[in-house]
Write a protein that binds this DNA or RNA. Structure first.
Lengths: 220, 220
DNA sequence: TACATATTCAAACAAGCGTTTTAATCTACC
DNA sequence: GGTAGATTAAAACGCTTGTTTGAATATGTA
């Protein structure tokens, strides 16, 4: 029993890789196991053998795509020791960065888009393991910028405003390319967008501080 | 040929209604014509008879959901004669209003979510007939607030920032309900959110004006 | 070498899909 | 009332889906 695992893991891994790309591109129901197996160079029965059934492979792909890829970059941007403004800028840029390489393994996000449109049982995994940690960190940063607790309603609203701006470019990319064709997602363009979102958001955060703490600009 | 249309339109309409709800909930490929016909109380062949095939029914549903529902409210908010700030607030509120009735026929938006995840040929119809008019109007309003032409890059970026904040609550509603359960989408809560988005956005727009036109606060 | 296990393979299975077919029914007009 | 056309109805078709089967092969162990 301890043996074979080397060989088996090869096709197992290839199946996850192939399935990840296809699930991200086509969604769960559009992707057929035959396509996956063909892309992975495996037999049609391989999915059922290694993952019980198609949904078993899907949940494994979702779980895999959590720990991988750009979420780490975003998390790293959050966890650095720096002033909250710097952290905010870094997070925005890190998240937008992943839009540059559209053909790269940007699984987790496109899969997430499919989950939003038609949630599957894997939705809870996605939210709890990937979204919630980042969301609470965002509330922490915004809260420290506003000098309000992270759970405060105003903190939440501002966090949503920032997240919404970022997600817009991720979700509506196909629409943006039709509405504003001159907006190519080049590296410099992404920097420009990231700076804009940061400035746009900080304008309100600073103004709010100025109103509530008119004299001193210290921390809390 | 001029006759019958009364009777035929009955099942035709019922098919569109049933299909709209199901397409919105399950997406195009996950909805079966058998389900639609059963819900509409029609025969299995009714879809093919009235709409040629399943995609014919889908595009008709998409087209129908364009002229209907809340898009008119948003468009009306845009087209009123009022200061741009007032228009902006009205538009934000009108769009968020449709989130209140989640079980009502909020087709166009949920269908649009599916289109974003996996675009179908109907995507072009959606963008050109529904999105683009609203998008250009939004750019006009933001442009007049910024004293910049609607096509200016900064105008576009600000428009995206506002749209992104609004869409966040539409798309990520299922996620928000898990992350911030205390945020029920009641009528008063929606007003609160709308006001926040307006304030959040106007903070930057006003600040930008103050910097560029330091002395006078007149129009352009 | 012989055995047990793990993995691959080709083929077939049952179920569900959209669609087509063919006949029955309804409605309006001459 | 009879006829033509529009609409509904039931059944079957062809196809694709995910899954299962059972044999063949590879692999590690004694």
């Amino acid at each position: 029993m301890p043996a074979q695992t080397v060989v088996s893991d090869q096709t197992r891994t290839r199946l996850i890789d192939a399935a990840g790309e296809m699930f991200a591109e086509l969604g769960f129901h559009h992707t057929t196991v035959r396509q996956i197996c063909q892309r992975a160079g495996a037999n049609i029965a391989a999915v059922n053998y290694h993952f019980r059934d198609k949904t078993g492979l899907y949940t494994e792909v979702v779980r895999q795509s959590m720990r991988a890829a750009r979420l780490d970059a975003v998390k790293a941007a959050f966890d650095q020791t720096a002033p909250p403004e710097v952290i905010l800028r870094a997070v925005i840029k890190a998240r937008l960065e992943s839009l540059r390489s559209l053909d790269l393994s940007d699984w987790h996000f496109r899969i997430f888009a499919h989950e939003l449109a038609k949630p599957t049982p894997a939705m809870n995994v996605v939210v709890n393991e990937a979204i919630r940690p980042l969301y609470s960190r965002m509330c922490n940063v915004v809260g420290s910028l506003l000098h309000l607790p992270p759970e405060h309603e105003k903190t939440r609203l501002c966090a949503h405003s920032i997240i919404g701006q970022i997600l817009f470019y991720a979700f509506a990319r196909s629409v943006i390319s039709r509405l504003a064709p001159e907006m190519k997602m080049t590296s410099t363009q992404i920097d420009l967008i990231a700076d804009h979102i940061a400035e746009f958001s900080l304008a309100y955060l600073r103004q709010t501080n100025r109103k509530r703490l008119p004299t001193k600009g210290k921390k809390r």
